[in-house]
Simulated assay, not measured.
Amino acid sequence: MAATAKAIAPAERRRMTPRKWLSHLGWRHLVGLVAVVYAAFPVVYVVSASLTTDGTLTGSNQLFQTISGANFAALNATKFWAWMGNTLVIAVATAIGTVVMGAAAAYAFSRFRFTGRRAGLTSLLIIQMFPQVLAFVAIFLLLLTLGEVVPALGLDSRLALIMVYLGGALGANTFLMYGFFNSVPMEIDEAAKIDGATHAQTYWTIVLPLVVPILAVVSLLSFISSFAEFVVARVVLQTEENWTLAVGLYSMVSSQKDANWGLFAAGAVVAALPVLLLFLFLQRYIVSGLTAGAVKG
């Protein structure tokens, strides 16, 4: 009887009318197509604007009417590549620091039972509820005062900006990795302890290789957020040589009189390449890293 039902099911699917197919499956394809067009159009428009020579966005209303690499060549006459270097240094350092600090904190909260553990987790959760815009004035005053004692951690310092990014990302990323660490069985740690491994050996050689997906996801999210962040970077970095890409590209169009949107679009296209390449490189870790941590909290 079951075999007969299985044989009938493919035949019914083959006889499915267009209306029935649209009501059962086709609408999903339509929704997906609309979503792809909605997401891809801004990207196509920016690429078209980067290839025009008139320097205005209205000139790109007709996509790819003119194609020229003049805007990309003109980037060499600006400090774009210095800004790119600053941004990459800050983003890479922030991503590495976030992974190292967040993984250590998540491992401690997941594996150890100590006084203040629950209070620490609750505090991290409560702090994340406050909007970050409330901290801008405090960050400015803190770095202004700290710079008088330690100039390397004062205003207009890339190291200071990295420290600010690390502090802001620690809470959310710790919670994200905490759930993933909880999905790793405790029996693995106990077996390593029986074999004579220390906590450090268990952490570095056994547990971390098992949580590589969440480490990749956290590093990617941290890299993207610090790579594209503008407000804090604009507050902390004050000289043009230390600007990040977000601040530098904004300076190109901040004056509406001399705004060159074609140059801005070219810079945006080039700036998107590192993020795109990193995303493609870590793509196989993203789904498992975001979903596996929800198995056990």
Rank of each mutant, 00 (worst) to 15 (best):
A259S: 13
T239D: 11
L57V: 03
E229W: 08
V99D: 08
L161R: 04
L249R: 05
W261I: 03
N61A: 13
T78P: 06
A268Y: 08
L22Y: 13
I224R: 05
I214A: 06
E190L: 11
A70Y: 13
T98K: 01
E148V: 00
I286V: 14
A246C: 07
T4S: 12
E187D: 14
T174S: 07
N242D: 11
L277T: 05
R284M: 02
A135P: 01
S60E: 06
V184P: 02
F227I: 06
F140H: 12
E241M: 07
V149S: 14
G262E: 10
N242F: 08
F64R: 10
A39I: 06
T198L: 04
P10M: 07
A74T: 06
S251Q: 10
Q128G: 01
S50C: 06
R15S: 08
I206N: 03
T52S: 12
L33M: 13
Q132T: 12
L143K: 09
F223P: 02
V43H: 15
Y178P: 00
F130Q: 08
N242L: 09
L159F: 14
L221D: 01
R284V: 00
Y285I: 00
S123P: 01
K79D: 08
L176G: 01
S254V: 13
T66P: 03
D189H: 05
Q62S: 11
A200W: 15
L141W: 13
L280Y: 14
S251K: 12
F264V: 03
H24G: 01
A138H: 11
Y203I: 01
T66S: 14
Y45S: 05
V232P: 01
Y203V: 00
L208N: 04
Q238F: 09
R284G: 03
V217C: 07
Q65L: 13
V31G: 00
V236D: 02
L263R: 09
T239W: 09
N76S: 10
V235E: 00
A70I: 11
T202N: 10
T56L: 11
S288A: 12
G116K: 03
Y250C: 00
A95V: 09
V253D: 08
T94R: 00
G293H: 06
E187A: 09
K79V: 00
A272H: 04
V34N: 00
T94V: 09
